[in-house]
Design a protein around this nucleic acid. Sequence first.
DNA 1: AGGATCGGTGCATTCAATGCACCACTGGAG
DNA 2: CTCCAGTGGTGCATTGAATGCACCGATCCT
Lengths: 296, 296
Amino acid sequence: MRHMETFRLIEAVARAGSIRKAAEDAGLTASALNRRIARFEDEFGARIFERLARGVRLNSAGELVLQHYRAQRSDMARVQSQVADLKGVRRGHVTIACSQALLPYFMPEQIARYRREHPGVTFAVKVRDRARAEEELAAMRSDLALVFEPELMVDFEVLHQIPQPVCAVLAPDHPLAARDEIRLRDCLDHPHIAPAAGYGVRYLLDMAARRGSRQVEPVVETESFELIRHYVLHEGVVGFQIPIGLRPGGTSGLTVRPVAARDVPPGLMLLGQMKGRVLPVATSRFATQLVQALGE
Amino acid sequence: MRHMETFRLIEAVARAGSIRKAAEDAGLTASALNRRIARFEDEFGARIFERLARGVRLNSAGELVLQHYRAQRSDMARVQSQVADLKGVRRGHVTIACSQALLPYFMPEQIARYRREHPGVTFAVKVRDRARAEEELAAMRSDLALVFEPELMVDFEVLHQIPQPVCAVLAPDHPLAARDEIRLRDCLDHPHIAPAAGYGVRYLLDMAARRGSRQVEPVVETESFELIRHYVLHEGVVGFQIPIGLRPGGTSGLTVRPVAARDVPPGLMLLGQMKGRVLPVATSRFATQLVQALGE
DNA sequence: AGGATCGGTGCATTCAATGCACCACTGGAG
DNA sequence: CTCCAGTGGTGCATTGAATGCACCGATCCT
């Protein structure tokens, strides 16, 4: 869309922090870009950039303008998607930011199921922790977010939520594998492997451990859930996961036992969108499917 | 705002039903406008106008585009208003579509009260019947609507509602003026003056009369509530109004008596906005004031 | 048949956007 | 301090996208 060129450039300048840099990236001269911005500020009626000695920075008016542009851009995408829909083309593109736990089983299954019925719809799956996922939504770089225990910003509109108890993941020959339910203190007494700080599971574990005057002291700390699942098969340590990230049948050679809910309260897996946005057709349908799948 | 010129022209063409007419109005040639539209359709990826023998008409894709433009325009106005606000200018413009009954007392009072605290805010008050008021909101030509018994379209978001009983308006020497409450059949037995079809009061009266196998047969039928209020002083007829359109004290020389609620159920006065819109600062504050005033 | 009105198109023109060269200013390194 | 690198801002010539003009073919109404 030709008419939002200026907005696109404004966004580029805001990102680069400098008119010259942004101009170079955009393939035009600094003077041209400078004048575009000056002209926009004239028409708009207010400065949108603070002029610093070493560059520029968006002021609060500029933040509002940028937010407006992003909303407008995403709405235009929605309109195009709806038009494509009524042309019978049945195309679309769904962008979703989700927690790592959904990568092995849940998301692949859901996307495959959807694409079986709508092969024209393409997907972008971004892996974001709970804080970054909400940023994605706010900047409208993603249409949906499916995250575990997010910090719930004001702009996050919850479409569905399900509780997810924290589970211990063990090799079948681990001493704790015999029990049906495991206490947190038993996990902490054994060597354990845990996600790094910032992840929902770790957050719940830290809170619970502190309540029992204990500490989570993992022998291995990692950002990869996949590493956790595989590592417990190599060394007799206790791993932690949530059920949605584990194969339901348990054919993967892992033993899964819930950690006592009275020790570690279940966290919430939330499906959400940017508040007030009208989602494109394909996205909206996919969200509906997710809600249904989560409900089962 | 320069960048939505094309959208503005598209709207003009849609309204005029002809590229040539719209071009003339806009002060450019038909060929230029034609090409602008063709270029937009190219970029957009779909036709937005049906080409007819005698002109053009928006197709459904075009309707979506126009709706997008209106939403975007109103959001830009909101952004500018917020920026003006944080510049300390405290300016703004409130556009409200309302029923005729609010013109004599309610709206003047409310606007004056608001402007006493915010002299920089200007107002546009459009008088629209209940059907047209919702059109105004949908096309974003008005920010708020305060209407009696609207038909409640899907895009109408109710901010507040209060019941309004239908009242008989009489000269003090009218035979019915002696009673505290008046039955509908008594009104219909006397000569009466009523609003034209399409107005909320008339709608309620028609429904109620039909239930009693009677008919509303006014000696004078008018679109002006003001005429009704004044006419009852000239001829001994029964007029109909809702309380919010009458002076509370009753110093206007009129006698007001409620029509029995078991005959004519009270209608609803609804304050609403376009669903999902973020209102400009000034408008939002004014809406809050209206809600409070209606609550009293 | 014929006039009126419509959308669409080829070609010359124009003016707004751009590139270039340059200025003034700032901050940090030598 | 000087000097340099990097920034935003400006006057002037240039260019190309948008426009106006003239014209075409189609359609509708008289």
